[in-house]
Design a protein around this nucleic acid. Sequence first.
DNA 1: GCCAAAATCATCCTAAAGTATGAATAAGAT
DNA 2: ATCTTATTCATACTTTAGGATGATTTTGGC
Lengths: 159, 159
Amino acid sequence: MKFALRLGIKYKEFLIYGMSMALVLLLLKVMEANFIVFNYRLDFFIGAIAIVFTVLGVWLALKLVKPKVVTQVIEKEVYIENQDKIEIDQKEIAELGISKRELDVLNLMAKGLSNEEIAGKLFISLNTVKTHSSNIFVKLDVKRRTQAVEKAKRLKIIN
Amino acid sequence: MKFALRLGIKYKEFLIYGMSMALVLLLLKVMEANFIVFNYRLDFFIGAIAIVFTVLGVWLALKLVKPKVVTQVIEKEVYIENQDKIEIDQKEIAELGISKRELDVLNLMAKGLSNEEIAGKLFISLNTVKTHSSNIFVKLDVKRRTQAVEKAKRLKIIN
DNA sequence: GCCAAAATCATCCTAAAGTATGAATAAGAT
DNA sequence: ATCTTATTCATACTTTAGGATGATTTTGGC
């Protein structure tokens, strides 16, 4: 487990530290001037100084230490429900040499329309639809309309 | 942004701190005994003590304080394209009254198999497949296998 | 304007799909 | 044990799909 522990430059904290130190030293001067210091053992005075500055040091350290940043990447699974919006593979269409009209027929085929219904929708004869569908089967290398639809969806030619 | 800032109990660090403090006070005693201290200004001595214990305090704090942990949660959206794994709507199947065998036929139908091929795969006769498919069409309220496949996929009966 | 590809349509034929009906058997539930 | 439902199969028939072939008409690019 790695963690970065760097000292940041925080002027405010240093300022407070400096002022505290000055205050303590000033206090010392006042005590010295009034001969208060030597009413007690020097040991205790030194000890007090040590404790105060230890506390100050601890405080300073806590203020200055930058927090360890743990980046936790949570993978949120988002299922795509829009099957309608699958992008159509134009390259594949071009490679297979499927024409616009054939694509029209293929799309209506995928919706479950009969050749006669397709003919009605596209204003062409049943024979023409048969010709188109036959060509589609050859180009898709399938034998039936159901296979054609299945393969076309798999190849993202239709949606 | 929450972060935990707790003091851990680390005896080794406290021991080192205590020993350092004892050493400094011992040094002080020795200097005091030899009248070294007062050869210099008390100010400088006190300043030195302050600096030493500040450093000790900082060191102690860094050792004792568990690093502030900032947990940064980044949600990464992972898109899943698995159309195969669309859950099948068992309720719909039950509501439509589609039997297991009919579902078998429907699934193979969706793969583009002919009735004869389905019969071969399921080890039943062509006539049986026709009976099943006819029943499927009635239950799905469609007229052709292509429509059946289209509607079945839409209703998530098959995938 | 010409040419190739795309789109259109027709005819004939076969294969597959779908309908209707009846019936036997297996499996599960009450 | 009985009754219903699912599964199986058959036969006869109709409709639709698909294959093969040929031909005409648009249409877009050079």
